[in-house]
């Protein structure tokens, strides 16, 4: 009953098909506005920060840990960078300090999760609130002025092949993470921890260490995303938390692509841009403000429900079948005190 989906890799690459059809539909619908290089360049650059944040969310998520503070971290990094520059520090100092702030917050999150044994969901939710408070303390709740420094804006807005260079940064980060997660032991360990922490521990994986590192990585990426945003769009008091849900949405959506069932780099990036394409196209048709939110949220729920549900159903059916076979084949387990009899009382 689940054999039909195998052809054309529709399961794994449904996002690509969807992307292609969105592009075709909007190109026909808005032939003068949509299929232009300006559209391509602006969508690519505008979503680069969200893409970096999505990758940041993804790393701890692979190990089964949520980082809900990533939006607040990025926001704080943005404001720190801007304030440092307006107070006369060099761009290099501003960039490094802002990224270090992100890493430090990640390390604190790691400490709370690994050492204090607070669930990551609660720990980072609390941290997000604490960071929002710190942000008000630092800024006095008034938006600082944008640094009028052309080198600073050039950091992300220099053109490379028509694209703003921030797109290149994002792709480099993605490539590095893809390598780290797919082709190094650390990445493998992280996936193993996400699959079964106890089995990982008993296979010699230092679960606490890698969990901690994954949170530091997500904090660092949030710092980088914050710097990129500051350079691209200037300071904002509230963009970070608003990007949290889209980041998670992209990662969950992405896990239905390329290697279904696994959070993966290119799936997340693809999801970001499929959604962006849809939103952009609709924005050309109508100018309502709520489109982005509605489209992202709706697409997330629909896609994960359909794809994830189907995968789970497939896996579950397979597992049940195996259990049944095992039950039949295996005489030795019939005498086991902990056999399934324990469940049907």
């Amino acid at each position: 009953m689940i054999g039909i989906n195998r052809n054309l890799g529709f399961d794994r690459y449904s996002g690509l098909y969807l992307w292609a059809s969105l592009i075709i539909v909007f190109s026909i619908w808005q032939p003068r506005l949509f299929p232009t290089s300006a559209t391509v360049h602006s969508v690519a650059a505008n979503r680069a920060v969200a893409a970096v944040l999505a990758l940041g969310v993804m790393i701890p998520l692979i190990g089964g840990v949520f980082d809900l503070a990533i939006g607040a971290t990025a926001n704080l990094a943005t404001l720190s960078a801007v304030l440092l520059i307006t107070n006369g520090h060099s761009i290099a100092v501003a960039v490094i300090v802002a990224i270090l702030i992100g890493a430090l917050i990640g390390a604190i999150n790691g400490f709370i999760v690994v050492r204090l044994r607070v669930g990551s969901f609660i720990a980072t939710l609390g941290m997000a609130s604490v960071l929002a408070a710190v942000q008000i303390i630092v800024t006095g709740n008034s938006q600082p002025r944008s640094p009028s420094n052309s080198t600073w804006t050039a950091l992300t807005q220099t053109k490379v092949l028509g694209f703003q260079i921030i797109v290149l940064y994002m792709l480099i980060i993605a490539a590095v993470l893809w390598w780290g997660l797919r082709h190094t032991p650390a990445g493998r360990y992280l996936y193993a921890i996400g699959s079964s922490p106890e089995a990982a521990r008993l296979s010699g994986v230092r679960v606490d260490f890698y969990t901690w590192m994954s949170l530091i990585a997500s904090g660092t990426l949030a710092g980088i995303a914050g710097v990129l945003y500051a350079s691209l769009s200037g300071p904002s008091l509230s963009y970070g938390p608003a990007l949290l849900l889209p980041a998670f949405a992209a990662v969950f959506l992405g896990s239905t692509q390329f290697s279904p069932g696994r959070y993966n780099v290119w799936g997340s990036i693809l999801a970001i841009y499929v959604l962006a394409t849809g939103v952009k196209g609709l924005q050309l048709v109508t100018d309502v403000v709520w489109l982005d939110l509605m489209f992202s949220g709706g697409a997330l729920i629909a896609a994960v429900a359909v794809a994830g549900g189907r995968q789970r159903a497939g896996a579950e059916a397979k597992r049940r079948e195996l259990v049944r076979q095992e039950d039949h084949h295996d005489r030795s387990s019939m005498g086991e005190p902990s056999a399934p009899a324990g469940e049907d009382g």
Partner: peptide, 28 residues
């Protein structure tokens, strides 16, 4: 619960405790 990773491949299950053997910088 403790012995294996059901959603990782058989290959990854066998190599997880031996990744050093397969690590040829910069790739597994």
């Amino acid at each position: 619960l403790q012995g294996c990773f059901l959603d990782l491949s058989a290959r990854e299950n066998i190599s997880i405790a031996n990744l050093r053997d397969f690590w040829r910088v910069p790739l597994l």
